[in-house]
Amino acid sequence: MQIIVCIKQVPDTTNIKINPETNTLIREGVECIVNPFDMYAIEEAIRLKERCGGKITALTMGPPQAESALREALSLGVDEAVLISNRAFAGSDTWATSFTLASAIRKIGHYDIILCGKQAIDGDTAQVGPGVAAHLNIPQITFVKKIEEVTDRSIRAERMMEEGFQILESPLPVLLTVVKEINEPRLPSLRGKMKARKADIPVWGPEDIDVGGDQIGLNGSPTYVAKIFAPERKGSGKIFRGDAEEAVDQLIHELRSGKLI
């Protein structure tokens, strides 16, 4: 079983804020982490390998420091890693990113299952996974919460929907995006970290994956970010303090006069 995991290094968004005066991100003290949803993809890849044997390759596109995300994947049990990094890829939107990843996957050659997290927590688009599947013209199963069965030719998985789930069957190769219900990611081990530290991680540029021009980076991106700004907050309302009984009475009064209850 040849498995490819696409991962992304993201800022830990729980700590990110915007400076309301300049409308710029305050990135001081914000750590870069492996996108949490991709951790489930990595874990599922390792479990698939434990079940079926084979090899796992982790793939990321990003600045040179994204290499540390790949090392983390290696420390967990991924076999090989490739970093796609070049200034020419800067400014890629989801179209250009999925095109670039798909091109790198073609260069890797043989693959049975491609795993992605359902979305990245910085952009929250959930578009790159299906985009890669479309570029490679392979089937996809999005929002997978369980892999029920896998053989060397097919897979059966549960896709999470708003009010339940669908069970889908697909031939391989297939691309899956996974949700956090699928597993509980393991922690790295010391041995894994030591192995990862020494691993050789090739860096591929546009010429390595035979792409360029108006397909990658900002030129290859149909969308662009016109502006960013801080979200609006509602003003403060009536806050009741002190005696709980009194506060509850006041609240009920307000809700009743607003015909809310």
Partner: peptide, 23 residues
Amino acid sequence: ATAIGRSLIPRVAVMVRTGLTAD
């Protein structure tokens, strides 16, 4: 931006080669 919409539309955007903004 539902499970269905977010599975279908990214594929279509790639197929017709245009921009897509999520959610």
